[in-house]
Nucleic acid binder design. Sequence first.
RNA 1: GGGACGUUAGCUCAGUUGGUUAGAGUACUUCCUUGACAUGGAAGGGGUCACUGAUUCGAAUUCAGUACGUCCCACCA
Length: 878
Amino acid sequence: MNTTLSKNYEPGQVEESWYAHWEQKGYFRSKPDGRPPFTVVIPPPNVTGVLHMGHTLNETVQDVLVRHARMSGFNACWVPGSDHASIATEAKVVQMLEKEKGIKKSELSRPEFMKYAFEWKEKYGGIIYHQIKKLGCSVDWDRVSFTMDDHYYAAVIKVFVDLYEKGLIYRGARMINWDPSAQTALSDEEVEYRDIQGHLYYVRYQVTGTDEYITIATQRPETIMGDTAVCVNPTDERYAHLKGKTIIVPLVNREVPIIFDEYVDPAFGTGALKVTPAHDINDYNLGLKHGLPTIDTLNADGTLSAAAQVFVGMDRFEARKAAVAQLRAEGSLVKEEEYSTRLGFSQRTNAVVEPRISTQWFVQMRHFADLALEAVTSGEVKIHPEERFLATYKYWLENIKDWCISRQLWWGQRIPAWYDADGKFVVAATADEAIAKFKEQHNIDHSPLTIRQDEDVLDTWFSSWLWPIEVFNGITQPGNPDINYYYPTNVLVTGQDIIFFWVARMIMAGQEYKNQRPFEHVYFTGMVRDKQGRKMSKSLGNSPDLLDLIDRFGADAVRFGILISSPAGNDLLFDDSSCEQGRNFNNKLWNALKLVKMWEGRQATDGSIADSRLPFAVEWFGQRLAQVKAQVEDLYKGFRLSEALKTVYSLIWDDFCSWYLEWVKPGFEQPIDNAVYAKTIEYFSELMQLLHPFMPFITEEIYHQLAERTDDLCVKQFTKGAPADASVLAQGSLLQDAISALRDARVKNNLKPKDPVTASIQTDARSQFAPIAAILGKQVNAEVQFVDDAVPGAITVVLGTQKFYLSSEQAVDTGVQKEQLLKDLEYHRGFLASVEKKLGNERFVANAKPDVVDAERKKKKDAEEKIEAIEKSLALLG
RNA sequence: GGGACGUUAGCUCAGUUGGUUAGAGUACUUCCUUGACAUGGAAGGGGUCACUGAUUCGAAUUCAGUACGUCCCACCA
């Protein structure tokens, strides 16, 4: 035995050295050449932290696809990178500065803050890249991209200027979502709505100059000071007499008009609505329609502004309590009830989002939505799994609203708009260009520099949407060889949660700037949950650490674990035990290697081993391999990676290890036929190749352990085999069934595996069994012979229409025999009855396809033969 | 309120255009530590395919409805 192989597979060192080897050989590096490209851009992880299990799943899926393509004649290029993640990262950096250094953002200048942010990016970007490496991802490290790289930054600015000039970007005051914690505007997509148990307050407003009151209901009494009207439905008779009247807003005693609008539902609440145009989107629209003034009673940080007159400087939630208390004291609070409602929260800071009127930059989306809709409905971009996401995608695009892209932050691409002291502005990439444009557009000379740049940065997704283009410098250097060769990319693998944020917008940008889809396929992975189905989160502590998992099980086992349980698009319940299964599989492979290595140097080259088992075993496994290779290719085409892996797993464990190796295994310390040995090495190598995209490390290791090699599995090209021979496969199944049936008979009849027995097969099946009889005999430890008649006193085993007689020197318990046979008989009679019922139905015979009817007739005949065989055996038992 | 998807063994899931008395992994039961592997081997039990109805010779599969679940979207105070 080769003593250099450890008892169990030890992944740690093997993984380290193979990754280094692949890198050193440059296998992951890609340059345009004559081969067809297979391009994948990584969804750039945010530089806010470390990779979680969702990333692990995505990266693993991508690596499988990329490695498979690389081994299938493609020039595979997988671009790694990371995303500056504007608001998310800025929030983390601000938090870190306060906690660790005691520095407030307000104490820093913009350049000082950026320095800290870049330090943060270096640190976390580095951690992420290390994890990607440990997982075995075959990314091209020469192409690492970051969404704030100089060229990338320039691309974003260029696109902004271009879209502004095309009239697709505009600046204006609109009601937007405001995050009072980060103190920035947000896009609609960055707001998450959650059901909240709140209160509904009923407050009465006095009609001016009367004793009459109108009661309104509100969830936000702290905004009463911003009321500029009360609105009722024009058809509501209760309020018809109030036309032209005014009403007094409590707390501030302001006189405002009573207005009439269909918008108000008379049946809801009291049928009267307070109108606060500054703090509610509906009220804002009503205000526009009726020409109402807008009183903004909140500051950017969520405290009450001077315009509120009361509770000034108080936080909005404190002010709510104070307002309620005062209304109650005044006798204006009519009643208060529990109310369940939905509130918008900032996705990044979790602050309650405030609707706020503010001057921001927007992208006009109708134009882009049409582009993105067309790309998918035409089938140019294919979504997997289609059924689940196509409808969502379409609905969103059909109902899209303009995209607010300005953020009141520092970490990101600064908006290239330039203002003069009068508030006039131009959009230009640089200050010099801006000055020129001021001359041109406003006829004002601002040189030397008297203009200032917009303080705001762009939404992080306004840079991410260029990812598949600008990682190849397609915006900054259009038409360069890389973009021409690698674009469009082949497949995007990502989570379904960013379908709107990112996927749809990349399609828009691709159509706009390349006039072409950014990718052919989109493969959505599900969310990774724990085994109880809960989301993985830091607070629950149920999110495993990737490096720790790799440490415990090895990267191959982790890849196996996450892939084996993840059908496309479905959420996957992750549990350590699936990694354990992967580790066990490693070990199985390792032990198969050990077995084969034991044969090394013990080959008989003189043909002296005339074991009749061998030809069939070798032939059969070759056919199985051909069959599975074809199946796996089909599964790849449908992105059914989980099933592809299961198929390969079963081929290796069941067909190769449990059947094939057992069939060709020589006796203890016996030599092996050289040709069989060579074939076995070849098969084993092919299996490793088939498995390599899923489990790259151990397969490469075993490939090299099996023989002296001058090549590496990593880049070994798949070969196309001949289609499998069905008759050989059928004979293999018959053999397996016979082995199982005879072993079962041994167990049931208490015959130990070592007890010698004779298995007699009826002569009429000789041709069928001749090639496999030797294997059968060996596997069930029996002498096999062919007989014409039933063997008296033997155990009868019925398999299909075939009878076997198992005779031994030991006494046979006929009771057990009888019981088993009766059970079989019952089953087959039931089966026969169902077939006869079908065939007895004239309409079945008349309507069903002829081959279906023939199949049923054959089933009937077989069942009858089986029953006859069993009955005969029973008769023999007496 | 609108929409999408799902419901198959204890658990996680396959099941291709309707056609063997429905499969896999895992868990479970029994037996086996000979000579690759107990991280293993052999054998086995376990499901009225959510429910109701329709179409059909035939339905896990097609259609309609119901229930339950998951997710997305929506400005009702």
